[in-house]
């Protein structure tokens, strides 16, 4: 655990040693309420809840999480510090989880910056706080899934811009498979069971139930699997750089 904690501390500190984390948190703190007010019509719904914010949360996360994940390995490769990391007795899984956990902590902090809205709706009415808390858990899990995918694609290149574009593309892909127009298009071209299985793989569909306040173990397992898959791919890609025929 010691190398994992060392990597986590270094990564977390690295966010706040530069303006990166502050810029990211500021953008998120303004963008999330803006979506709720302008696109979600928070005040027009006449209901004391945060549904208008969580409705648009996947689309905000689909852009911002790859931006948070793009530097994970691409920056290490570009600066040459990956060689130094690989020469230290740090297991790759510890480096990958340490990097992921630090970025996830920043994402969690960004979500926490929207808590004033939660306090405000409590002031204005009597919302279902358990449902809102579940939606926050869902947003955190969705952010984790996107971050892990972003980290996997960051391991594929030394260019952070390419890592971002690939990461955002992958996140959009796992999100849109749950949209009705995509499902209709898939159903028209693929056998029913295959189209249905694509729908089951959609992060949007899994987030939807959590957004409505339904805490389903299957959804949590889905997001944890997505995180595991992303980190597994990242570890395999970095390990492959050692070469040597997989000894």
């Amino acid at each position: 655990m010691t190398p994992l904690i060392a990597v986590f501390r270094r990564e977390l500190a690295s966010w706040f040693e530069t303006p990166l984390a502050y810029v990211f948190l500021t953008v998120f703190a303004f963008a999330a309420p803006s979506f709720a007010w302008h696109a979600g019509g928070l005040f027009e719904t006449g209901r004391a809840d945060l549904a208008p914010m969580f409705d648009y949360m996947p689309w905000l996360l689909v852009v911002l999480m790859p931006a948070l994940a793009m530097r994970a390995w691409a920056e290490e490769r570009d600066r040459g510090t990956l060689e130094m990391l690989l020469a230290a007795p740090i297991p790759l899984w510890a480096a990958a989880i340490g990097k992921f956990a630090a970025a996830w902590a920043v994402a969690g902090l960004a979500l926490a910056l929207t808590f004033p809205m939660w306090i405000a709706v409590n002031y204005l009415g009597a919302p279902d706080n358990a449902a809102i808390a579940t939606a926050y858990v869902g947003a955190l899990m969705l952010a984790g899934g996107y971050l892990a995918l972003g980290q996997a694609l960051s391991a594929a290149t030394h260019n952070q811009v390419i890592a971002f574009v690939l990461g955002a593309g992958a996140c959009v892909l796992v999100t849109v498979t749950g949209l009705p127009f995509v499902l209709d298009a898939l159903a028209a071209r693929l056998p029913g069971a295959v189209a249905e299985s694509f729908a089951e793989l959609s992060a949007l569909a899994r987030f939807e139930s959590l957004r409505r306040g339904v805490l389903d173990l299957a959804d949590l397992i889905y997001f944890l699997s997505l995180i595991g898959l992303g980190l597994g791919i990242a570890i395999a890609m970095i390990d492959a750089r050692r070469g040597g025929g997989g000894r």
């Binding site: 060392a6 600066r79 230290a88």
Partner: peptide, 30 residues
């Protein structure tokens, strides 16, 4: 690697870190 100290070509390091922080990170990782 536990017995090894390695200085890669070009001496790469994290530019935002101080040398003290950089050394501390290496020691914590070990």
């Amino acid at each position: 690697q536990a017995y090894l100290g390695y200085l890669p070509e070009g001496a790469p390091a994290y530019p935002a870190m101080t040398p003290r922080g950089f050394v501390r990170f290496h020691l914590r990782a070990r």
